[in-house]
Design a protein around this nucleic acid. Structure first.
Lengths: 203, 203
DNA sequence: GGGCTACCATGACGGACGTCATGAAGGAGG
DNA sequence: CCTCCTTCATGACGTCCGTCATGGTAGCCC
């Protein structure tokens, strides 16, 4: 709640990128949204806009990773399919509650700057990795064999990101529900079957 | 090859949006890329930039639909999984041959303008629908039962779009290969099994 | 207190943007 | 020939952008 102006600016940058993309997000807009002094920009971000956006992307990656960790911890009787459902539900809830104005900041950053700024593209790549890691770790934890959990994590991120774009374009959460419904059996089928009966989760 | 200046401008707009996004694509850049006279802009596109981008989005949707139709026609012994693999392969080929500068124009348009311009968002939605339709139709043709083919088409578009974003961020086609490998069994499993034996493809 | 550093304020600069006003070629039809 | 209409050309306007220069305040340390 009581954040330093610097943090507020990074956070506001992330929010505005989600809504307007990188190109249409101005530094003046960021300071206004953050209610931060404009003079602080050149002090905290001497690297200019690229540095500010890069930190926003980094923050977004960390935030996504934290959300995955939190939702996995909260799931009772977790399965890979339920994890994916919970990840999609977070977006579903936000869309229905807040509208479709804000998308994924990583997608916006890649779409706007992948060809222009290697720094920002790399930052987005790292953010995606940081997001993918806890997902793959959770899958492993749930019994998905090693290499497969990485593949399924990539599939989950891809399908989720794509469904978010479709949902925003249509202003309808149906794509999110659809990919969840279609992917859940596949995901739950990836954990090797045990003989029916009471088998504990020790390995 | 010999296109009217108007067509060239729409086409160039689509290309530039793929690379730089909507916000960072200038009208002067478009006319320069199209080698078109600048004065023609206000004549052919009195609606300004929004009209130009909207037509570019529309063109992109039609183009994607045509590519799906073409690739389905070319597949020998087609299956849903092979269709998806072929769709991903087109992106794979472009990335390896041309680099990762250009992404999907629909994703860029949604990311940049979904919150700002209802016209452009709607245009992107229609373009996605026009792309989804031939995919679902092809799935039905291949034996996927009615409602399911629509769901799987949504899943295919979502996973493909997401994988494109990941591939660009990492400058690596691996995400495309991963989603294809993971999704192919699911897709091929969606066509009801026939008894093993020589059964022709008549319906 | 003097000096140093961190933080904030403000105004200006050069450039790029989308848009518009104005007008010139150049063929079609009277 | 003269007019109309499509197409193209060019310059200007106002706005916003990211960046920088300059200067002011506040607190800490010697």
């Amino acid at each position: 709640m009581t954040r330093t102006p610097r943090e507020r600016m990074v956070l506001s940058a992330a929010q505005l990128v989600r809504i307007h993309g990188v190109g249409a997000t101005g530094m003046r807009d960021v300071v206004a949204h953050a209610e931060a002094p404009r003079g602080s920009l050149q002090h905290y971000f001497p690297g200019g806009k690229d540095q500010l956006i890069a930190e926003a992307v980094e923050w977004a990656g960390d935030y996504a990773a934290r959300r995955v960790a939190r939702v996995t911890a909260k799931l009772e009787d977790p399965t890979p399919g339920k994890l994916f459902e919970a990840m999609a539900a977070q977006w579903r809830d936000e869309f229905t509650a807040q509208g479709y104005d804000a998308g994924c900041p990583l997608v916006a950053t890649v779409a706007d700057t992948a060809a222009t700024s290697d720094d920002l593209r790399r930052a987005a790549g790292k953010a995606f990795d940081g997001w993918q890691r806890p997902v793959a770790a959770a899958l492993s934890e749930l019994g998905v064999p090693g290499a497969r959990s990485e593949s399924l994590a990539v599939l989950m991120l891809s399908a989720l990101e794509g469904a978010i774009v479709l949902a925003r374009a249509h202003q309808d959460v149906a794509p999110l529900d659809t990919v969840v419904a279609e992917l859940r059996p596949l995901l739950d089928g990836a954990v090797p079957k045990r003989r029916s009966g009471a088998v504990s989760t020790v390995d």
